[in-house]
Design a protein around this nucleic acid. Structure first.
Lengths: 200, 200, 200, 200
DNA sequence: GATGAATGAGAGTTCATTCAT
DNA sequence: CATGAATGAACTCTCATTCAT
């Protein structure tokens, strides 16, 4: 009984993972408008099974987003005590951009901005970024007038820039991350016209 | 006769403008998936009227995008002979970001990337940016390894950054434009890891 | 004043005729589902003008059908006193089938079966056919058990048969009229299984 | 498991049949322009269910037509070896006309003439008729100048003739089948004015 | 009388979601 | 637990008809 229960559970867990992976692929290909049926088909399960694992399509997206954000909090924690705070911040931003299909993450994040779990983890990521930025600023690696919230907001920009191209080189974001990061350095910084925002 | 013909036309023209304005607002609020019915309601006309003015939802979006892009080609032409090429480029990027509700332009541009009119005007904007960038580079106002295509792609980033905030100060993009523009300056520039892309 | 009034009237009459002609063409090409806009365009007038001349699309169709039916009553009257009643009936059926685009007449007749004018003229045609059939029967040209209503109903069959072909020779109906008419002849006639219907 | 699967399938199958039956009725009453909503209502299911069973309205119509045509190929095969070829042909035509609501088949066949399935089965029916006609001709039961294609095209005429009546006796087609079949007999045949067509 | 812009009901179709099996 | 049939609201788009000009 426990054996079969466990088997079921592991089956269910496998299905959940298949669904998340399938969703990521399908959203990457077709955008958020991709249908639940598409995702179920890709995962090799029936449509109804999607709703056994996720309360709604929104919930599925939120779970997807959370998974991505958790890897970011992990990275932020790991890099918080790094020797070179400037390099640590740059590495964090590189990791953030380097998540496959992050392309969608932007859309999906917007889509699930009201989800409680997403908000929570997003705040944790934000806190992690705040720490990395504080460290980097203290070390003189980035300009003093830039806040953690600024960097948090700029995080997705390098990937988003690629949306202007229909078939971009997959690593092109590295170029724009470099440019933007140069804008965060103290060298050649000009006065900023507006105060930094608070993360609502 | 011409008077009455003009009267009709001016009424129709007013409707057309209402529709474009309404579409801009509604797309800004709900994204591209906003329905034609929403747009009609906001414009205060019947659903069918939308299709009298625009062959399809796609066509409406393309028209919207074209309107925006045309103001950009105008600005680029006007600024091409400015005395201070660096200031001219910055002003152009300011104008580009300062278009009300540009927020959407990015999504909408992606959505209508295959429209012939949009492609044409987009290429003109690109050419204009190329000129402004060449001038600025020649004047030493921006780093030599940055191309017109780079700037064209980065153009929307300051506004897009605000997507991370649910209720941002409306001028916040100025802050991020300043940061990104600092990244384009020669001071403190680091080597870029990838070559600049071609605009497909 | 009378001059201009007359001019207007003749203009209006011309428009009416253009519209009927255009409608016939367009219905022939696209079927009854052809739009009023199509018809107006073909006639070179505005959509609103259609509704000045015809109360509704149904009314336009009914007018079209009436025009066709009137040529049939004319033919029936003309042939009522012909020397050879059998030949007269055959000629009438030939005329009935030979109306260009009669193909649609069938559909259109069904479509406007409830229109008062159509019903009236249809009854006149029926009466005319009744006479021609009575004459032919009296002359022994057609079998005695066939009524005017039978022939009236069979009238459209030769043209309708061609619907089974996507690109039929335009005169093919002549072949099927000949076959059906042979079925009306006394030679080789077998007993009919049901009594003739009344025209409702 | 197979039992429940079968149960589901039988429910679904019932719905499919309800839909086909409802479609047949509704098309008979209102013509091809009858809406999918009407059909769903008649079948007692939701609109969406129609599209679960049929990819499109066109597909539904094609399925309907195919169902009808299949009973005809069956009949043709069964009758191909009959002792009396003339009687066999007449029986085939009787079966063809006796399909409930065949009334529509003509319209619907035209509507779905481009559907691959329909084309295939229609060709099989044609081939079957060709055989029956060849047999009947060899036996001297029908005139030598009439082809299988002729009979194939005339097949629907008896039913179609009834369109001229708003409330015809349901068996009235038998009367017109008899008349038309008399036209196919060798007795009293007159020379046909045009060659027989090829089925495109 | 003629125009064509506006209307709004209704078409076919899609899809997230529910639920009997 | 999984299935997939059923649902019905929402979507884009069409069109006969009205009416101000």
């Amino acid at each position: 009984m426990t054996a079969s229960a466990r088997a079921l559970r592991s089956d269910a867990a496998r299905n959940r993972e298949s669904l998340l992976a399938a969703a990521e692929e399908v959203f990457a290909e077709r955008g958020v408008e991709a249908s639940v049926a598409d995702i179920a088909r890709r995962a090799g399960v029936a449509k109804g099974t999607v709703f056994r694992h996720f309360a709604s399509k929104e919930d599925l997206i939120a779970s997807l987003v959370c998974d991505h954000l958790i890897t970011l909090t992990d990275a932020a924690h790991r890099l918080a005590d790094a020797g070179d705070p400037g390099a640590a911040l740059l590495e964090f931003l590189t990791i953030a951009a380097d998540q496959r299909r992050q392309h969608d993450l932007t859309y999906l994040l917007t889509y699930s901005a009201n989800d409680a779990r997403v908000t929570t983890i997003r705040d944790e990521v934000h806190a992690g970024v705040e720490t990395l930025v504080a460290n980097a600023r203290a070390a003189g690696a980035i300009r003093p007038d830039v806040t953690g919230t600024d960097v948090f907001l700029l995080m997705c920009a390098p990937v988003h820039v690629m949306d202007g191209l229909s078939d971009p080189p997959p690593d092109l974001w590295r170029r724009y991350l470099a440019i933007i990061f140069d804008g965060l350095r103290p060298q050649g910084a000009t006065a900023l016209p507006l105060p930094a925002p608070e993360l609502s």
